[in-house]
């Protein structure tokens, strides 16, 4: 490959041509990240900020916590709980959106060509409004005197209003609602390309509907499923608004924790270190994506 490129022109030229883009990427993406990395090795300043004194403390604090009163070092279980909770909620969100998004996408992809656009338009409607406003709307649905509880009581299904607001269930409802379109769209894109003659052929060869689904439809929409899962998982793990507004801010996710460390915690280096941990998790997810699905990878051929 490399030799082919060399044959086409001066090797320096493509560097010159890509230089503006590379500069922007370096300055706008890598630059701030570098500051975060550097800050994570500094000492917190009085009342926020940093002092330029090298220290490993923040990284030690990611894994170990000093007892508030005896100064004893123990494994930072509370940090690990927050990390685990974020990963868990993001995973469950991904799975639910997958289960709900795939049939939705399949439904749209099997509509007559002329009507698909309308269905797609409906899917994108939530994006027309700001996330905070949509979250407020969910609050109003699930609160004790909200739509849902009023309806359930009127129907005689429950006698006391259900406490949904300010629980993990509420956070999950919010996240699934917000991220569902991100799953539907890529899955739809891959299902739309599916050749319907393949399905007919499978049926002609006596495949039952279930095995058509497992052996034909799912494998060929694999890249869409993986792209959708990545698109959902990455923003879900760093969710910030939902845990506060629907979860009540009692059970933090990583995004909230980082905000807290920079704000009231007044420990910027520690906040930077936790940010890098979050980024590492996201990178790991992306790597899995690149290995498993990618646009071209995969064992199926």
């Amino acid at each position: 490959m490399a030799q082919n490129f060399k044959g086409r022109g001066a090797p320096g030229r493509k560097w010159i041509l890509t230089a503006p883009a590379l500069t922007i990427i370096l300055a706008a993406a890598a630059g701030p990240l570098l500051i975060v990395v550097v800050y994570s090795f500094l000492t917190p300043g009085a009342y926020g900020g940093v002092t330029w004194k090298f220290s490993w403390d923040s990284w030690v604090k990611v894994l170990f916590e000093r007892d508030l009163f005896s100064d004893e070092l123990t494994l930072a279980t509370s940090n690990l709980t927050i990390f685990a909770r974020s990963i868990w909620l993001a995973l469950v969100t991904t799975i639910i959106t997958l289960l709900a998004g795939f049939p939705t996408a399949y439904f749209i992809a099997t509509r007559p060509r002329t009507r698909r656009d309308l269905w797609l338009l409906l899917i994108t409607i939530p994006f027309w409004t700001n996330l905070v406003i949509r979250t407020f709307a969910i609050q109003d649905i699930i609160r004790q005197e909200g739509l849902l509880n009023t309806a359930l009581i009127k129907l005689g299904m429950v006698s006391e209003p259900l406490q949904i607001l300010y629980t993990d269930t509420a956070v999950l409802i919010g996240m699934v609602y917000v991220y569902l379109p991100l799953m539907v769209l890529p899955v739809y894109a891959s299902l739309e390309k599916l050749d319907s003659r393949l399905l007919e052929a499978a049926s002609d060869l006596y495949a039952r509907p279930r095995s058509v689904l497992w052996n034909v439809i799912l494998p060929s929409s694999r890249s869409g499923l993986i792209a959708g899962s990545t698109l959902v998982f990455i923003p879900a793990i760093s969710t910030y608004v939902t845990p506060i507004m629907l979860g009540g801010g009692k059970r933090l996710m990583m995004g909230n924790y980082i905000e807290l460390l920079f704000g009231q915690g007044k420990d910027w280096p520690y906040g930077s270190a936790v940010s890098i941990v979050l980024m590492t998790i996201v990178m790991a997810a992306l790597l899995i994506y690149a290995r498993a699905g990618g646009p071209k990878g995969g064992a199926h051929g």
Partner: peptide, 20 residues
């Protein structure tokens, strides 16, 4: 005390008087 708290949030104040 935390186990008895519903929320740690500024906007929680506005919900006082509702069931939550």
């Amino acid at each position: 005390a935390k186990q008895y708290w519903a929320s740690i949030d500024y906007s929680g104040i506005e919900k006082i008087g509702t069931g939550d």
